[in-house]
């Protein structure tokens, strides 16, 4: 069970009419009503994310010439490091497909080399 549902649901002791999850049940046939497609389960899918960030350093050609290398660049980069969205249960870009292999955030180091 999602922690968010545990934290915020309708219960007899806390009759919150706008709780995240309606009254609990143990079988789906008890809650046919709640399983309908409705605005209750609808969320804003907008997001803004730091898709990529990169920091690079190119070695000086004078140094490389001795090694007969045309260019050499070392870099560190990242992907999806930061996401801003009102939806918190899972990665919002996955849409309704939240209980699935999650989208990845990546930290990367790499080198680009060119030899003439």
């Amino acid at each position: 069970m999602l922690q968010a549902f545990a934290d915020d649901h309708w219960s007899e002791s806390d009759r919150n009419l706008y709780a995240l999850y309606p009254r609990f049940a143990t079988a789906s046939n008890q809650i046919t009503n709640n399983l309908q497609t409705s605005t209750w389960w609808m969320r804003n899918g907008s997001f803004l994310r730091l898709k990529s960030v990169e920091l690079g350093y190119s070695l000086s050609p004078q140094l490389l010439q001795r090694l007969r290398i045309k260019s050499l660049r070392l870099y560190a980069s990242g992907m999806n490091l930061l996401t801003i969205s009102g939806f918190k249960l899972w990665d919002v870009e996955q849409g309704g497909n939240g209980f699935a292999y999650p989208i990845q955030k990546v930290v990367n180091i790499g080198a680009q080399i060119s030899i003439n």
Partner: peptide, 27 residues
């Protein structure tokens, strides 16, 4: 000799449905 770059990307005007059929929390 240094370079730095960043790129933000966003989507908007889209709705997400917490599929109630797949999200039955208890049973």
């Amino acid at each position: 000799q240094f370079d730095i770059a960043f790129f933000f990307q966003g989507n908007a005007k889209t709705s997400l449905f917490i599929n109630p059929q797949r999200r039955k929390p208890v049973f």
